[in-house]
Amino acid sequence: MEDTQLSMYQLYKEMLTKYLDNKSEHALYHAQQFSKQMMEKDMSPEETVSLHMSVFQEIAEDLSEEVVDSFDILLEVMIGYGLAYREHQSLRDKQRQLDSELTVAARMQKSLLPSEKIALDSVDFGVISVPAGKMSGDYYHYAHDEHKNVGVAVADVIGKGIPAAMSMSMIKYAMDTLPEQRLQPGALLENLNRVVERNIDDDMFITMMYGFYDPRNYRFNYASAGHEPGFIYHEESDKFENLDGRGLVLGVSKNVTYRDYEVAMNVGDFVVLLSDGVTECRVDGEFIERDQIIQMIRDYKHMPAQKIVDRIFYDLERAQEFQLRDDFTLLILRRKV
């Protein structure tokens, strides 16, 4: 400590002497670099003022008393800046700590999502889900049973950040407790609604679409709780159709029933589920139209499902200069045989 103070004193003295001698830009540049060193050594503004004053007193002869005394005022004023500087440092440390806690939480959240790929010859599946911040308010699900029924879901918590993320994990746990309803979309949503209604704040809602592909009759059965409608692509007619479905968002009212809908899937047909983070992407200040999303899917539809969702995400992310405003989830399930 004493040593560094001494060497700082020497360095500062040389610098100031040089400058007073030739007033060169070079010396000023040196001072700028030196300020970084001082900050690294945790020197506060008031210490810097004091250093300047003592060096100056040594090299300038016959300083008037007024000049010397004027530094008292400067020093006193600098104490406040020094405190603000210290506070800034401690807040920065705190911020780092919060950030790393969030990173851990985000990793935990990720582990709630399915990780194994669907390895069935009957379907081709792809999903991408990217949070706008660290934690996501979107949830997706996919799973298949021994009869090769493939269930898929996308849910979107209205709200952002940590509270949304916490509600998202609730959906996951609730889903786990309802395996019998996997082939009854409406009943599944009805049960989820009861859990959500009981457990989340009045001002939070969740929208969700759940459906499953039944390989015995080649149909996609689904139900919706106020969720952004998905699409189905019919290869034969080369047309996209909305997966419309009526149903109240989860968490508003205790006893709600949800209607089951179904749609035929021929070979090559695929369903698309999404969260409103996809449709609320803003390109050139305007919300993207569903037609535009359809066009993008159309452009990539020859690719495997995972490629399609990855490409669309990349394109939309890029169009928004790599800044997501909302959590983004896009899922595609295609009938292969």
Partner: peptide, 20 residues
């Protein structure tokens, strides 16, 4: 806690005293 003071986090107040 830093930033709690009514002066709105200019580093002073009791946390400042503790630091000084």
């Amino acid at each position: 806690e830093d930033g709690f003071t009514t002066s709105g986090g200019l580093g002073a107040g009791l946390p400042g005293v503790k630091r000084l």
